[in-house]
Write a protein that binds this DNA or RNA. Structure first.
Lengths: 208, 208
DNA sequence: ACTGTATGCCCACACCTGTTGACTTGCCAA
DNA sequence: TTGGCAAGTCAACAGGTGTGGGCATACAGT
C-alpha cells in the first residue's frame, strides 16, 4: 500500500524542517515557536519553510499529523482494557513529542484545539463504541477517559507538576487503569447526595 | 485583617485593566493577549497598563492571583471528600475565569507553569496532608487528583471537547467524585499484570 | 485661588513577526 | 556544452509587539 513517492532532492530539508517544527512547537507552543526559530534549528533559510509548507498554519498541520494507533481492544479480555489503554497512552506520549506539541498548541490556538477534537472524534470514539452499544453513552464515558488521560499528560509533560513527574510508569498504570476501566466498562455511579448537604457552600473569592 | 488601603482615584482604571486582562488571558493565552488588546477592551491607554503593573509579566501576575479557597475537609465525613471537592472545583471554574486563564497561560508560559506549581504546593498539598499522614504518599495521591481535575477543566473549558462540554454538573460529580475519593482515601490498587501480557506492544507511528 | 501631584493620552523607538520576490547556485537531461 | 529547473540565499516589506518619555489635564491640600 506504499505510495511510490518520487524521491525528491529536497526530502532531507523537508524532514529537517518537520523535525525542528515538532521540537519547537512541543517546547514553546504555537506563537512562540517562530518560523525563524524553527528554521535556525533546522539550519535552513526561513523562506524554505514557506516554500515547502505554504505558511505557518500549514507547517503546524504537517507537524501535528498524528496517529494514536489505537489498539483493537475488541479481541482483548474486556476487563483488561484499562491496563492496555493506559500503557498504550504512556507509550505514545513518551515515544513522540508530536502529542505534547499538539496539546500545547491546542490550548492556545483554535486550529490546534480543532485538531485535538478531530483526534477525539476519529481515533478515540470508534474504540469507545466498540465497547458500548449506545453511542451517546459511549461518548459520555469516553469524555471521562479523555479527561483523565489528558490531565495526566498535562500534569506530567507540560506543567511538570513535581509529584506527577516523579511517578513511575508502573505507579501510573496501577492507579489510572482501574479508573479508565471503570469509566469505560463499569456501571454508572449512583447519584450523590443533594448539593446543600455537606458542602460549606462557600464560593471562592480572589485574594486582595 | 483588612488593610486600610488609601482609596486612590485610579482604582477604577486598575480594576478595569485587571478585568480585561483576565478576560483576554483566559480567552487567548499569554502571547496573543497583547497589552494593546487588553487596554482597548478596558477602554484605556496601553501605557496605563505599564504604569500600574510595570510590564506584561507583572500584569499577568496580578491577573492570575488566585485563591482556590479550599474547604477544610477535616471536619467532613471522610467518605464525602470526593463529592465535596468535585463540587468545589466546579464552583471555582465556573465562577472565575482566572483559573482558565492560568491554565491556558501555564501551558505555554514558564511563569504561568510556575504559578500553577505554586498553587499545587501551597493550596492543594495541605489538604492532602490533612487526609494522609505520610507526606510522600499524600503527594502521590494528590498528583492523581490534580491530573483528573485538571484534565476535566482542560477538556471542558479549554479544548471544549464536545462530549465534555455537554456533560451536566451532576454527571460530572457522579463520575468524578468516586475517582477522587479513591485517589485520596482508597487503598492502593494492586500491581497490574506484567508488561508483555495482553498488550500488543505496538508502538504508535506517524502517518506518512 | 494656587500649586503639586496623580492620572491619562499621544507619539515614538527598537525589535520581531510572517511573508514575498528577485537573485544565485548546482544538478540532470538532451 | 547547453538549457531548464529545482534548491537555496538574501534583503526587504508591512504590520504588530512591549515599552518609555513627554505633555496636557483635573483633582486635592493649602
Amino acid at each position: 500500500m506504499e505510495i511510490e513517492a518520487p524521491r525528491r532532492r529536497s526530502d532531507d530539508t523537508r524532514a529537517a524542517i518537520l523535525r525542528a517544527a515538532r521540537d519547537r512547537f512541543a517546547a514553546e507552543g504555537y506563537e512562540r515557536a517562530t518560523i525563524r526559530l524553527i528554521a535556525r534549528e533546522a539550519d535552513i533559510d526561513p523562506s524554505m519553510v514557506m516554500r515547502y509548507y505554504g505558511n505557518k498554519a500549514g507547517l503546524f498541520a504537517a507537524a501535528a499529523e498524528f496517529d494514536l494507533r489505537m489498539p483493537d481492544v475488541s479481541y482483548a479480555p474486556r476487563e483488561h482494557v484499562g491496563v492496555i489503554l493506559v500503557r498504550h497512552f504512556l507509550d505514545v506520549w513518551e515515544d513522540d513529542e508530536a502529542f505534547t506539541a499538539l496539546l500545547r498548541v491546542g490550548v492556545t490556538n483554535p486550529a490546534g484545539a480543532e485538531k485535538m477534537r478531530g483526534i477525539f472524534r476519529d481515533q478515540l470514539r470508534p474504540l469507545a463504541e466498540s465497547l458500548n452499544p449506545d453511542p451517546e453513552e459511549a461518548d459520555k464515558r469516553l469524555a471521562f477517559v479523555a479527561s483523565q488521560m489528558l490531565g495526566m499528560a498535562l500534569s506530567r509533560y507540560v506543567l511538570r507538576l513535581p509529584p506527577a513527574v516523579d511517578l513511575t510508569r508502573d505507579e501510573i498504570v496501577r492507579w489510572l487503569a482501574p479508573t479508565i476501566q471503570g469509566y469505560l466498562t463499569g456501571e454508572a455511579p449512583p447519584s450523590p447526595p443533594p448539593e446543600d448537604a455537606g458542602d460549606d457552600g462557600a464560593l471562592p473569592a480572589r485574594t486582595e
